[in-house]
Design a protein around this nucleic acid. Sequence first.
DNA 1: TGACGGCCTTTGTGATCACAGAAAGTTTGC
DNA 2: GCAAACTTTCTGTGATCACAAAGGCCGTCA
Lengths: 216, 216
Amino acid sequence: MNLHPRPLDANPLAHDRVYRQLRSRIMHGDLPPGHALTLRGIGKEYEVSMTPAREAVRRLAAEGALTMSTSGRISTPELSNERIEELAALRALIEVELASRALPRAHFALIERLQTINNAVSEAVAHRDAVGYIRTNLEFHRTLYLRAQAPAMLAMAETVWLQMGPTMRALYGRLRRTEPPHFHRLIIAALRAGDEPGLRLAVRTDVTQGLRMLAT
Amino acid sequence: MNLHPRPLDANPLAHDRVYRQLRSRIMHGDLPPGHALTLRGIGKEYEVSMTPAREAVRRLAAEGALTMSTSGRISTPELSNERIEELAALRALIEVELASRALPRAHFALIERLQTINNAVSEAVAHRDAVGYIRTNLEFHRTLYLRAQAPAMLAMAETVWLQMGPTMRALYGRLRRTEPPHFHRLIIAALRAGDEPGLRLAVRTDVTQGLRMLAT
DNA sequence: TGACGGCCTTTGTGATCACAGAAAGTTTGC
DNA sequence: GCAAACTTTCTGTGATCACAAAGGCCGTCA
């Protein structure tokens, strides 16, 4: 006898679906730092039992996207300034390398696409849309790095983004500026010119500029 | 009524215990690349049910220490040459930075300790003990990097080690050399001299030398 | 000899439950 | 009025089960 019938519309790989949606929300800054989550709450929200919710949470915790207290309570991380500095340094190291590897493969179509994405970034900045800014900004970087053909490095970079997601939202949310992204233009210009040192500098500067907001 | 009594000697945090032991075995090269694992097998080996075994596996898979096929089968990763090159490049990037940050804090006691660990590395090499070599070699690097006071970076470096564990064992296992670790001596010398460029070069060379074994 | 097909075993997935510990809310005592 | 003690609720953990699909095994047929 089937004691626990599965709903007919249930997607296979429930835990993966939960994982991906939670991951996206965290990376894009949907959740503030320190936001508490519960397995039963997640299960209810995504219409699954505690089991796949737990697996998704455990996976995200392994990537640093969530933290678990000693008693197992789940929340988004609240990063110390030291940790933010470390993560920014990691971004600089990894993303400069990714950009450098993408440079010889960056042809016209890619640069055009970056240009288009950058317009969306500018719009998000103009509308003071923090979540939109984070999303389009990451899309800009990911589009460039995909050309590097270095999946392990890209995964590392995305893991860092994931850890910074809630904090980025908090930082950009309190930011009040409307300038278009200057360093993105430098990146695009360096790509066009095939200027590797210039590209490395532009990426490093763009990636670490967020630190300056902390000092203010 | 208690249908499922827990054994009296059961440790709390079963999944964490399973995770740590599996992680150690993988990182130290106890398992060859492509080695298959099963949840029930792991549960039996560590005397737990499938649930904590699954959580440990899911966590290790998130860190790249295990791979899961589309049908969910679990095995240690078999790395392509391209991925090995990427991981070596990541090691170079991250560990050079860690060493650089550790340099100003590296005092006499630390250098003495590195010296001692390095003797153990030499012994493992002399005895052609692949697992012992991997373990002591990682201990050498970790001891140095702990001084950098950069936990996020160290975690990233360890994640890379974890991914390379099974492959390292296969590489070093087929290696037949008895020379003591030359680049470790260079690292120690650079630390003594406070020579930052020399330290960076020594670490980068030590970390990427394994690639040369692939070309043979 | 080799390939196809059917059967049985193995294996991951997800749901549910009992339990223990933590957190929060309530009452009591001074 | 306030803090301590008690009670209730909440929350993660681990065990067990039903199920489906994949893998492996063996026999049959060309």
